[in-house]
Write a protein that binds this DNA or RNA. Sequence first.
DNA 1: ACCGTTCATCCGCATATCCGAATATAACAA
DNA 2: TTGTTATATTCGGATATGCGGATGAACGGT
Lengths: 107, 107
Amino acid sequence: MAVPSNEELELLHRNICQAVGDPKRIQILYALHEQPRNVNALVEALNTPQPTISRHLAILRERGLVTAERDGTSVIYRVAEPRMIEILDVMRQMLRGLLEKQSSVVE
Amino acid sequence: MAVPSNEELELLHRNICQAVGDPKRIQILYALHEQPRNVNALVEALNTPQPTISRHLAILRERGLVTAERDGTSVIYRVAEPRMIEILDVMRQMLRGLLEKQSSVVE
DNA sequence: ACCGTTCATCCGCATATCCGAATATAACAA
DNA sequence: TTGTTATATTCGGATATGCGGATGAACGGT
């Protein structure tokens, strides 16, 4: 795979990297991966004010990482890209390796 | 793989997600993946002021994503985690799918 | 010791991002 | 239409992040 052009770089950053650049949004992705939920369920599960949850959901939705389906008065959110969860899991595995190296270095 | 605890979430964010949350750092990772380089080579390859490059390298180095090896007066940087490049490549593939969906939706 | 090269860090400024109370909007029921 | 519940958006303020000139520190050559 070639080195990304500047335009692709910018799109990659805006649409994906930046979207998972916030811990609350990562948390939301995992919560929705566990099971689809409406906004209120997320508010309670993550113990976070509703506007905060809605704002993060809007960001994930605009980038196509979650889908929103209205069901009466509530809106059910789902993970749209299972690969995103896989990526996060790989990152977590990497993280363990990185932390081990850190702790084993005595300087 | 279980849902990450709050502490793991914070570490994941700080050590990895945030590190690749800047387009210049992604660009640096790809440039180093193409071939190891010293700071000056990066300055020229990315056409970016040296303090900016050094600052980004410090962030990547602190998180263990690149390694620095002094060679005389210059310092050669290398990608420490090839998996990080693989992850970015998967993100780029995802990106294409996401952009297609966007452009095919007529609202 | 002095100098030139290479890189790291400091610092002030500009911008981006996040937060959450307040408010607006959408859907449904009575 | 009025009220209630669920969600989205607005807004001001706080914090974080990026930038790059100026400066400091490390190294090798003379």
